[in-house]
Design a protein around this nucleic acid. Structure first.
Ligand code: NAD
Ligand code: NAD
Lengths: 243, 243
DNA sequence: ATGCATTCGTGCGCGCGTTCACAAAGCGCG
DNA sequence: CGCGCTTTGTGAACGCGCGCACGAATGCAT
């Protein structure tokens, strides 16, 4: 079996789903489920079964026809592909409201992303302890990133400080950034940025709410007008897993 | 001019970008910039200019050839399309770490999403005040949602409580949910759900970091191997706006 | 008034991602 | 040992969204 000849690129959309599969597989493993079909996994993940199979096929042929996927083995393969064979320490920039919640959240280290450091520009914040981590001054960022081998930075500053924070992270050697500030960061192309914009998410929901209310008393369609009571027509996800 | 005949559906990808445009347009308005070209807006939003024009064209023809878009007018149109002509009160379920940060965050009311209520199942949490809002017991959810005309709910409970929280929200009459728990919520198709999964975001970054490290010493490509120092080759976003 | 520069609006081709559908492959039972 | 049942892996069709490229419209200078 050739274990290490695979250097195909995985579609972005698939990469974005792998963490979802991984989490579900982890839960199955905890429940001592030994194998799972693409159908079962699709149900639990709320996606199409063919998509699951195609997604997983990018990693290799790790299923068994007529049976399904061995959970433990698949967990290993997905983790390997995502680069989760070792921890990725992260540094949080901005010890405000959000930085506090993030640092205090155990889920990160649990999933392989220990908060190795928190920095802030405000001398008032420096010296306090968030989630067991001492807040240090942002001027020490480079030293911290270098010595702790940090590749991933989290921007949790105010909007006005975000670009500065990003530039400092890049200068310190960070190559991936998760940005919570409602700002489009300008960084070298070689740096990967992902953003989480809560206000934008709410506005997207607002769009659909608005649209719904237009449809309700407007002209066009149709049935399902003012069904506010609970309609239990689940489209997805009744639990199922073959043992 | 026909103002209200437009019932075309806007592509999901476009809807997701409108909030970004809106934020930038708001900043331009604050800076008293009166008009902006698709090129300028594209720069600031970090996207292609044609995309900006196409996105905006779904709202109608609100630009002026040879000139650009009048900022104030465009703000109005985007807000109208997103349903932001009135506030959308939200209820937060889960008064933990995250619920605390969310409730204490002024940015939401500022953008039209006032935190009208916070509820929790834990009697210990009930009665405390988060961001000026009294935490109430989740059993009061229906009454709260009805009386305050709430359509949008935020799930900020532990993973184990998320499905229960979602079901209670739906039963109370909420039709849009923003979910922070790492769980695939099962709700009626008529309910719109968006999720924010921080661990997944980090894992996606991990994938690209991992890939990068493989490329660096592996076989394939190429230049840009271990360029850790800052390369100032910004692909995007030098400020520009025509006045 | 005419021409020139600018910028919008959009038709069109292309590439990516989703989904269907089916052949290949393994399992278990008789 | 073969047959039928199950489920994977993937070829192929489809649809959506992206971005180029260009015509149309507008403003401004002369
Ligand atoms: N709190 C939330 O729940 C929430 C929700 C959505 C979005 N956000 C966004 O997350 C960001 C942080 O929110 P918050 O509530 O924590 O804000 P905050 O004001 O409480 O904290 C910001 C922190 O960043 C620090 N800071 C500012 N500029 C800096 C810089 N250049 N370098 C280093 N540190 C710097 C400040 O000293 C402060 O401690 C904001 O952009 C906000 O829009 C927060
Ligand atoms: N804190 C963070 O920065 C952070 C980051 C990423 C993701 N998350 C996710 O957000 C969620 C909340 O995180 P947290 O740190 O606030 O957790 P937490 O444990 O501090 O708070 C959870 C709260 O939800 C309440 N709760 C539980 N079940 C409930 C139910 N059925 N109905 C109503 N309330 C219920 C609990 O009483 C508790 O107060 C978790 O799923 C976590 O994975 C949090």
């Amino acid at each position: 079996m050739p274990s290490e000849r695979t250097r195909r690129r995985i579609p972005e959309a698939t990469v974005a789903r792998l963490p979802v599969y991984l989490r579900i597989l982890g839960e199955l493993a905890d429940d001592e489920v030994e194998s799972i079909s693409s159908d079962g996994l699709a149900d639990l993940a709320g996606v199409n079964a063919a998509k699951v199979r195609k997604d997983l096929s990018f990693l290799g042929s790790y299923g068994t026809r007529g049976v399904g996927y061995v959970v433990a083995y698949l967990v290993y393969q997905v983790r390997r592909e995502l680069g989760l064979t070792h921890d990725w320490p992260v540094v949080i920039v901005g010890a405000g409201n959000l930085g506090h919640a993030l640092a205090g959240h155990g889920g990160f280290s649990q999933r392989g992303f220990p908060v190795a450091a928190v920095v802030d520009v405000d001398p008032e914040k420096v010296g306090s302890v968030l989630g067991g981590v001492l807040v240090r001054h942002i001027d020490e960022l480079s030293e911290i990133v270098q010595s702790k081998q940090i590749n991933i930075g989290v921007v949790a500053t105010s909007a006005s400080g975000a670009q500065d924070a990003a530039e400092r992270l890049v200068r310190a050697g960070v190559t991936s950034i998760l940005n919570f500030a409602p700002v489009v960061l300008s960084v070298p192309r070689s740096v990967e940025v992902r953003k989480v914009d809560l206000a934008a998410e709410l506005q997207i929901l607002s769009y659909y709410e608005h649209r719904r209310s237009l449809a309700a008393h407007g002209q066009g369609s149709s049935h399902s007008a003012t069904v506010v009571g609970l309609a239990t027509d689940n489209g997805v996800a009744r639990r199922s897993a073959n043992a």
